Amino acid sequence: MSSRRRKPAWLKSRPPSGERFTEIKSTLRDRNLHTVCEEANCPNLGDCWSGRNGPGTATFMLMGERCSRGCNFCDVKTGGMDPLDPDEPENVADAVAEIGLDYVVLTSVDRDDLDDGGASHFAATIRAIKRRDPEILVEALIPDFQGDLDAVDTIVDAGPDVLAHNVETVERLQWPVRDRRAGYEQSLSVLELIANSAVYAKTSLMLGVGEYDHEVYQTLSDLREVGVDIVTFGQYLQPSHSHLEVFEYAHPDAFDVWKAVAEEEFEFLYCASGPMVRSSFKAGEFFVEALVREGKSIGEARAAASAAAE
Rank of each mutant, 00 (worst) to 15 (best):
S108W: 06
N41W: 06
K7N: 09
P275M: 05
A58S: 11
D47T: 13
F233K: 05
R302P: 02
E168N: 13
V216K: 10
V170R: 02
P8K: 11
S297I: 02
L114W: 03
V167S: 06
N44C: 11
R181M: 11
C271M: 01
V109Y: 05
S280W: 06
D161M: 03
L193A: 15
I142G: 11
R5A: 14
V226M: 12
N41G: 07
V156D: 04
A254R: 13
L114P: 00
G147Y: 11
L28M: 14
A140G: 11
T59M: 12
M81Y: 07
V288F: 01
K130D: 00
R181Y: 10
A97G: 02
R111P: 00
D82N: 09
R224E: 03
G183V: 02
W10R: 00
V190Y: 08
D112K: 04
A309K: 02
Q238A: 08
D148I: 01
Y217G: 02
L45Y: 04
H121E: 04
N91G: 05
S273D: 09
S68T: 15
D256Q: 12
D256L: 11
A158G: 05
W175M: 10
Q235A: 05
L28Y: 11
L11A: 14
D157S: 13
H34D: 04
R302T: 00
C74V: 06
S273H: 01
E225Y: 02
K25M: 08
R302A: 05
M206L: 11
S197T: 15
G18T: 08
R293V: 13
D110H: 14
E289V: 13
T78E: 13
D47L: 15
S17K: 15
P16C: 08
K130A: 07
N44I: 12
R29L: 11
L11N: 12
T22Q: 15
R69D: 10
G147F: 12
E171G: 00
A158I: 09
A308M: 01
V96R: 07
E289N: 13
C67E: 04
R127A: 14
H214E: 15
F233T: 07
P134I: 07
A58Y: 05
A262K: 00
S26L: 14
R52D: 12
A262C: 00
E39Y: 05
R293I: 04
D113T: 06
V177E: 06
G274N: 10
D150C: 02
D179S: 13
V246F: 00
V209F: 09
D153W: 06
G274Q: 08
A305Y: 00
L188G: 10
A304G: 03
D85A: 01
L237E: 08
L191F: 09
D94I: 10
K296W: 13
E185D: 15
A254K: 14
E215S: 07
S297H: 05
G54V: 12
V190E: 10
M81I: 15
S120I: 06
V277Y: 01
V109Q: 03
L141T: 08
A272G: 12
V292I: 15
I194N: 05
